[in-house]
Amino acid sequence: MLRNLFIAIFILAVSASSLLAEDMVVVVNPKNGVNKLTREEVIDIFLGRNRQLSTGLTALPLDLPGVSLEREAFYLRLTGKSMSEINAYWARLIFSGRASPPTQVRSQEESMQMVIDNRSAIGYLERSKISSQVKVVFELGAK
């Protein structure tokens, strides 16, 4: 019974995020040189494992505000993990200082702007929020 309830909640949550953010895309500055990123490359960058890009630049990941639906949708679609899990992950690492979480921005617009401004920056947005000044390197479609 409990298990069925969890499954129901999970489906609801996924559906909600899907509804809220139909398509999420990872974008970079067109001058960055990177045209395409794999899911693994995206995970390594955002979860602090490896931020060295193929062009030699060190990527600067940008994170949307902690409680935003977009952020939750992004990580869920990218890693299959909930927000609390991602937070717990970072909690363990922060203590040792070996890896650091992405830079926090306040909104999608700010993230957009920082990508436009910074060649190393890399952010994630709803598809409807992007402009031609950024380059999409990875897409996370609604499921």
């Binding site: 979860l47 602090g48 494992r49 363990r92 690492l93 040792s96 070996r98």
Partner: peptide, 11 residues
């Protein structure tokens, strides 16, 4: 898993 993922020696 976390320690290995980010190769965190201290952890």
């Amino acid at each position: 898993g976390v320690a290995c993922f980010v190769e965190d020696k201290q952890l």
